[in-house]
Amino acid sequence: MIAAAVEEQNAATSEISRAVTSAAQGTQELEVIDDGRGIPAADLPRIFDPFFTTRLGFGGSGLGLHITYALVTRVLGGRIAVDSEPGRGTRFTLVLDRTAPLQGGPETRTVAGT
């Protein structure tokens, strides 16, 4: 996510910010915000689909956001949302439990640093 945002930015005139805050009890919220060109509304429903890219032939595989979505929702049990408009930039919001589920069992483990 951050790499894609950096790639789209003009370093001299654009900004990318990250913020981690406590959300509801037991969760952390991570926001990644850029002031780049934004994502067209027609593309928003597909951005987490595997192999969806607007950079075909220019190095984009279309797997970055799909992998991010899978890690956040399936591995970490969290949620990811996107808010974007062309010309306004993009905001990704990840909400993660401070205790991530162990794969293959009902136990949980605490994420380091919490």
Rank of each mutant, 00 (worst) to 15 (best):
T13Y: 06
Q28I: 13
P101E: 04
G105Y: 09
E85G: 02
L71P: 01
L76M: 15
L102R: 15
T108V: 11
V75I: 09
T90P: 10
I80S: 04
G62I: 11
G77I: 13
G26N: 02
E107C: 00
R91H: 01
V82G: 12
T68G: 03
T13F: 12
A24L: 14
R18K: 07
G87F: 05
G60H: 04
T54R: 15
L65P: 01
R79V: 01
G113C: 09
V82L: 10
E31W: 00
T53K: 06
S14F: 04
P45I: 12
A19M: 09
G77K: 10
T93R: 14
G87C: 09
T73L: 08
Q25W: 00
T54V: 14
A24P: 01
A4T: 12
D35W: 07
G105R: 13
A4F: 02
H66Q: 05
T73F: 14
R91E: 02
P106D: 11
A5C: 08
H66N: 15
R18P: 00
I80E: 05
T68K: 01
V75F: 10
S22Q: 15
D49P: 03
I33L: 11
S22G: 07
A81V: 00
E15G: 08
I33F: 06
G113M: 07
Q28T: 08
Q25V: 12
V20S: 09
R46Q: 08
P45G: 10
